[in-house]
């Protein structure tokens, strides 16, 4: 169980990935994508952890602290994730306006009719 965090990462990753692939609802796909990305955030945070380490604060009495770099990296990745989710939702909105549905199959059907 030493790699408890990593197991969670893998489980979340697979859940997210499965939702992206298997679900036809565009909102659900974005939710799946969110879970998938979150698992990667946890991966980075886990690898930064130092046993018995505290938060990386420069102060007296603190000699062992977690590696702050992955935290910083993942802050960037979280921002990217938010931007992606926002853009995905905006596109879903426009798709709903244009097609009247957010189900993959129905969109595909309407496209096939157009051709």
């Amino acid at each position: 169980m030493g790699h408890y965090n990593y197991w969670i990462v893998i489980v979340l990753m697979m859940i997210g990935f499965y939702i992206v692939i298997a679900h036809g609802n565009l909102i659900k796909k974005i939710i799946g994508l969110g879970i998938f990305q979150t698992s990667v955030f946890i991966l980075y945070i886990s690898m930064a952890n130092v046993d018995g380490g505290t938060a990386p604060i420069f102060a007296e009495g603190i000699c062992q602290y977690s590696n702050p770099l992955p935290h910083v990296l993942i802050l960037t990745a979280i921002v990217v994730g938010i931007a992606t989710t926002a853009l995905g939702l905006a596109l879903t909105l426009r798709i709903k306006e244009a097609y009247g549905t957010i189900e993959e199959e129905e969109i595909q059907e309407k496209d096939n009719l157009d051709c």
Partner: peptide, 26 residues
């Protein structure tokens, strides 16, 4: 309107690709 659907599909595929790269870098 198919541009929207194409952009959405690209967004999903592209994000999965980029996240894979992120995992690799991590």
């Amino acid at each position: 309107r198919r541009a929207l659907w194409a952009a959405y599909q690209y967004l999903i595929m592209g994000t999965v690709g980029a996240t894979f790269i992120l995992i690799g870098i991590g």
